[in-house]
């Protein structure tokens, strides 16, 4: 890739831990900024992506809002990168896939003590839940995967510098991990 590359990042059902790990690039962010402009990202507080070269997405898809964000993001990003365990296999939120959503909500909001008012959350503003938490690639085409919980900063560095240099990204030993 030549010129400044437009990069966007966002999170679905994730914990922003992948973003925090990205920030672990520390001083390497400075040389990166010489080659990259940030578009939509919690780092810029831009809410909607415009056409971008690369989109990094963390988190899985657990509700219709996640899907809405994902579709918009996919449409704007030439290359979409699934980042972190949740985007890649649902991660922690997907632990609920063992259970029926209705039963789960009843258990959490009705049966278990501690929440005070015993009622299911039913505000119309709340996005509808999916029956299962699914990884990003089950909804849209994904170009690259950057695994890890979170992927270490070295993985972001190796991956992005390879893309920027026009090389096929490979992760160094130790940077490719699932935990």
């Amino acid at each position: 890739m030549t010129g400044k590359v437009k990069l966007a990042t966002t999170s679905l059902a994730g914990c922003f831990g992948c973003h925090m790990s990205f920030l672990d690039l520390d001083e390497r962010i400075l040389p990166l900024l010489e080659r990259v402009t940030f578009d939509r990202s919690p780092l810029t507080d831009v809410k909607h992506a415009s056409a971008c070269d690369v989109g990094l997405i963390e988190g899985g898809v657990c509700n219709e809002d996640n899907l809405h964000v994902l579709k918009e993001f996919r449409d704007q990003c030439r290359l979409l990168v699934s980042v972190g365990a949740c985007a890649i296999n649902g991660g922690l939120p997907a632990q609920r896939n063992q259970f029926d959503v209705s039963e789960l909500l009843h258990t959490v909001y009705m049966a278990e003590p501690g929440l005070g008012r015993r009622a299911l959350p039913d505000d119309v503003e709340l996005p509808r839940l999916f029956d299962k938490v699914r990884p990003v690639h089950e909804f849209v085409r994904v170009d690259y995967f950057l695994p890890g919980c979170p992927p270490p900063a070295d993985a972001f560095w190796a991956f992005l510098t390879a893309l920027l240099d026009g090389r096929e990204p490979t992760l160094p030993r130790g940077a490719l991990r699932y935990d």
Partner: peptide, 11 residues
């Protein structure tokens, strides 16, 4: 898949 995830009483 969204309908199946819809919970009784909510929404």
């Amino acid at each position: 898949a969204l309908m199946n995830g819809r919970h009784e009483g909510a929404r």
